[in-house]
Structure formats: C-alpha cells, structure tokens
Design a binder for these strands. Structure first.
Lengths: 337, 337
DNA sequence: ATACCGAATTGGAACGTTCCAAGCTAGTCT
DNA sequence: AGACTAGCTTGGAACGTTCCAATTCGGTAT
C-alpha cells in the first residue's frame, strides 16, 4: 500500500544540461521553435529525443493557470446518444487546441458530484455536462469559476450556457404524427426531471390539448434507460387500460418498451404504435426500425464546445441558450390504430 | 482569440490569511483534519467555505509527482462493450482512491496516439487501453514510464500487462456449437488485427480443423463495427457461394451482418445461422436475440485497474497476462442448417 | 574605434501545493 | 523549579514549467 512517488522522468533541466543551454531555451524550443537559433534548436531537440523527454503538462498548467482541457461529464456511457455528442465534443475541442477528458456520472447524483469536483480540482478550463440530472442552482454555484455548458437541457440561467434540441417541438411532432394516423389514446412514458424529459412531456401535453385530447393524457414514470422503458410499459400493460400508442422519452427506453410489448405477445404497430426520441443508430436497425425524433448529435457536441470557447477565448460573459430544431423520422413502429 | 489566464480562484494562502494561520496548517486541515487542533480546524474550515476554496489538484500533483488519475483510452465510445468495461474501470479506480479519465481513440491510430500523448503529458499514474489497435512495440515504448494494461488483447510483452478473455476458446465454442447443429459450411468475418480478432480467427480455424472441416474454412475481412459486418456479409451474399452459418467477430458486426441478411430477404437461422461475440445487452433484445459468446465485461474493467494498482501500490515489476474464460450464450439466431 | 541595434539567450521569480525539520506551548514528572 | 514530552504549528525548500526583464553577441552605421 506504499504510495510513494512514481519513477522520475527527465525534466527540462535534464535536457538543458545535456544540450548545454539554459532551461529557458529548452522551454522556448518546445513552445516556439522558430524563435530559436538554428543550431541550438537542433541540439536541444536531439537532447530531448535522447532522454525521452516529455513535457510535463502539470507544471505547465500550474504556471499558465490553464490546462487546455475541457472536462465532459457523461451521465451514462451506455447511451449511444451521448457517445455521438461526445464525438462532436472531442472533435471540436481538438480542432481548437483543447483536449476533452470524459468522466462518467453513472446516472448517480452522488457519483456525478464527485466527478465534477474532480474536474474542478483538476482545473479543467471548461465543462460540458451531458445528460446531467443536477439542479441548475447547483450547477450555477460552480459555473462562476469556469465556463459550463449543459447539453440537452434547457435552463433560464444567466450563468450557465445550454444547448439542446427543441424537445417540446419534437414531442409535438411525434404526437401530431400519431394523431394523424388516427390515434387518440396516446400514453407518454417520461423520465422524471432527467435530461430533456420535462420539455418532452410538456410538448406531449400541449399537442394532446391542441388536438382536444386532454382527457387521454396519460403519463407513466419511467427513465432514460432500457429497464426504465420496460418497467413503465409493463405497468401500462398490466393496468388493463392499454393505449393504442406510446411515446417513449428516448430510443433506449422505447427499446425497453418494445421488449415488454413483444413479451406480452402484442404486435407493433398492430396493437400498439411506438415512438422513441433520439434517432440512434440502433433505431435504424431493420429489426428495430423505430419511429423516432431525430437530433443532430455530433453537431450538438461541436456547438457545445463552441459555447465554452466563446467564453474562454472570446470573453463572452452573458449566457447563451441555443436551441436546435429536431425532425421526425417515421419508420415501421407506427401505424393506424 | 486572446488566451489569457483564467479567473483567479482562492488559494491556500488566501484561506490561511483569512483564518490567521499558516498555509501549512491549512494544507494539513485539508489532508488530515484529525492531526489539527479542534479550534484551528474549525476556523480554517470556515474560512475555506467562506472563500469557496477548492484544492488545486494541479499544484498538488506537481509536488507529489502523482495525479491519482488513471487514464483510459477507449477506441470507440459507441461500442457498448467498452462502456461496460469502462464502468468497471471507473468503479474500481474510485474504490481505490483514484479517478478515471476517459479519452476516445476514435478508431484512428493518429488520433489515438494524440490521446495517449496527452495522457502522458498530464502525467496520469496509470493507463488502461480499451480495444487499442496500436502495435505492442509502440505501447511498450511508453509503458516504461507508467503502468499500462491492455484490455481485450493478448500480448507476450514483459512490460505491458494485459487482460482479456480467451478469444480462441470462445471462438472454438461458437464453432463447436454450430457443428453440433449440423453445419459444415461456416464462414468467419474477422476484423483484421483489431482487438481480439486474430485470436478469434485462430480459434475458428483450429475448431474447423479439429472437426475435419479445413476445406470449409472461409475468412472474410470485416471490422468491429456495424458497417464492417454489413459490408462483409454483403460480400459473402454476393459471392454466390453462401454458407449455412456465419461467425462474426463481435456483436456489433453481427448486427451489421444481420441487417445484410435481412435486406437480402434471407431468414435467420432458417437460411443462415449467425453467431456474435461479446454478449452485449443489445444481443439479448428480443428483436435481436443473438447467439453469442459472453465475456464478464465489468469484471474485466475492474481487474484491469487491479493490474495497474498492483504496480502502482504494491510495486509489482513483472508483467502479468490474465485470461478469463468466456461462455457461449445460445439464443435464436442459430439452428440446424 | 564607438555607439548602437536586433536577435538569441539567460537567470530568477512566479504558479499553489506538499513535505520536512524545527519551533512553540502547555502540561507532566521528578 | 527545571527538564522533558507530546501535540500543534510554522517557514522554507521543493515540484517542473512559463514569463519577463536583462544580458550577451555579432554585426552595422557613424
């Protein structure tokens, strides 16, 4: 259990000694080789290679007071939606000379808090939160010390930036589609306060009312997970009052619901039409072929980083809340009742 | 584009000044409150809260020469297999007082090299590589400076630890199962040199020979991705010589192959039996219900961290190569020819 | 020769911690 | 009362960089 210091690696001083120059020159060679004389540059570079020198980002970060790292808190690594967004984040960060470091929040608030705390202690330059369930007030508390962008959730915050798709509009599109097919008894599985669930729920309710179906509004609590979808769907199936269509809070939950419907021996869309949300690659599989609401995921990630960088490199102070429109993708899990 | 220093946060000195004690005492309170007198502890803690002090891990890491961070390079965030392993990694790291930081390799060698380089500059204490395609020799080059564990690939390295399932045994189980069902024309889609593909291929070949089916050995190059599976399967379908069973290199590729078979109007397992590898949650879905080879994924991640910690905290020097046995999970994509 | 210039190079002070040896202060023992 | 002890507390030196003002050096213009 000894936790002694780790093996020593060569420092800038070792390189300097070997090359017979000052540490400052070595530092300069590493950062901006053009500002150094031809011959000393070659000597320094050679010495660095011989010693296997690798710059110590920890020391650099300390003096520069910046790490060039953008932290990403991912609620659930298993959700392919986040994986796509994370791709966009990593890509955009890299393009701008930053590095993205991910940490999973495990869908557990305590764990998430810990992950965030670690990121803050590591002094990441900015933070992107993917699918966080944390209260905005709590986020705002640390958002004072670094740029924070929340992805997939709307906030009215004047401190925290946010970016997401118009969840209400997407949900309404889903309901409109079902109504157009002739459905009236449309239930909605929601995921509580998680991610964009509240907005989707409101969109569902709004559309239902708009179609004069307020009496058919039916909300069942589930989650953004497969298990959550299955549980909620089973609850619906066992209620004895089975609707002709179900709108799930996301694709993963829809798949869980699909499982439950399959297991009950009912047909999709024959007995129940099903709509998801996210348009994951998964949803496009021929075997799944889920009608769903699509969101530009990678782009979402890129723009999230953009928001962080606007504060970091351009000095923006006021919060921005970006909303991207979603689009309905009709597949074979929806049909006439 | 100004990249000035970021906003200043309170330091240990600010806290010390406010509490009217020395910086050393503050430091001590943060690290080991019990070794400090009752009253000064309270004063310091109060001052820290008032100022919103948060320890600077960068400075701590610099002097301690350790970061308490374990870096994880994930080849592909979209592969649920890696997500499970990553869960195990994060969990085990956390239990032992370390933090896991992920970075995606994008399935792109150049990108992966960059991600690793960043981790090394950040001076992570250990590195876990998930699904890396990097040559072992290259890995060994930096494994001298920190403990590295490769997950999912076998190496004979004396420097790098590795952990994985017995891919050859798993592949043989798959072939044995197909042969027992009566298949003889069994093709194998492989993923080149990626991850555990070579071993799985060798297991396939070995089992085929063992059953006297060496003449039916048929290898088609694909990849560990859905697209890779689809492409390879299409190649098989278009060859005119369609086997009665296909063994895919992993579940994701198997799903891709499934897509292609579905699209061709053929039945599974009526026309073609299909076996995957990994036993993802995906494979258990009723709509997919893929026969596959299972691996204890979360456990794999936990043990991977264990290997790193053995070196870090217990001083192990010799490389260890852990192999975990896989198990066949029979579902409905396999049947008699 | 002298003064001056720009480019190349340098030394020292930071950055925010931890570590360590040494100092202080009560209290205890003789 | 004096010596000693144990528990707290402290200042200064690291850690490996970057930053900045200052220095050196060869050349050029006067």
């Amino acid at each position: 259990m000894s936790r002694e210091k780790l093996s020593k690696q060569p420092t800038i001083l070792d390189v300097a000694a070997r090359a017979g120059v000052s540490k400052s020159l070595v530092s300069l060679v590493m950062r901006d080789p053009d500002r150094v004389g031809e011959s000393s540059r070659a000597t320094v570079l050679a010495a660095a290679v011989e010693l296997g020198y690798r710059p110590n980002a920890v020391a650099r970060s300390l003096v520069q007071r910046r790490t060039n790292v953008i932290g990403v808190i991912v609620a659930d690594l298993h959700n392919p939606f986040f994986a796509d967004v994370a791709d966009g984040i990593e890509d955009a960060a890299f393009q701008s000379g930053y590095r993205a470091m991910l940490s999973s929040g495990f869908l557990d608030p305590k764990r998430e808090r810990g992950a965030i705390e670690t990121m803050l202690e590591l002094r990441v330059d900015g933070l992107v939160m993917l699918g966080s369930m944390m209260q905005v007030a709590k986020i705002e508390r640390f958002a004072a010390s670094l740029p924070v962008t929340v992805v997939g959730r709307h906030t009215r915050s004047t401190v925290v930036d946010s970016i997401g798709v118009d969840n209400s509009a997407g949900a309404q599109e889903a309901v409109d589609h079902l109504v157009a097919l002739g459905h009236t008894r449309i239930a909605h599985i929601h995921a509580g306060t998680a991610g964009g669930s509240p907005r989707r729920r409101r969109g569902y309710e709004k559309a239902m009312r708009r179609h004069g179906l307020e009496d058919h509004i039916r909300l069942v609590k589930g989650a953004f997970t497969e298990a959550g979808g299955t549980t909620a769907m089973n609850e619906i199936l066992e209620s004895g009052d089975v609707p002709t269509a179900v709108f799930a809070p996301n694709d993963v939950a829809a798949i869980g619901a699909m499982e439950a419907i399959d297991a009950a021996g009912l047909a999709i869309p024959g007995d129940i039409s099903l709509v998801g949300y996210d348009n994951l690659a998964l949803a496009a599989l021929r075997r799944i072929d889920l009608t769903t609401v699509g969101q530009p995921r990678v782009d979402l990630g890129r723009k999230a980083v953009g928001l962080v960088l606007e504060r970091l490199d351009e000095g923006r102070e006021r919060a921005r809340h970006v909303v991207i429109p979603p689009h309905l993708v009709v597949r074979s899990t929806t049909g006439p009742p």
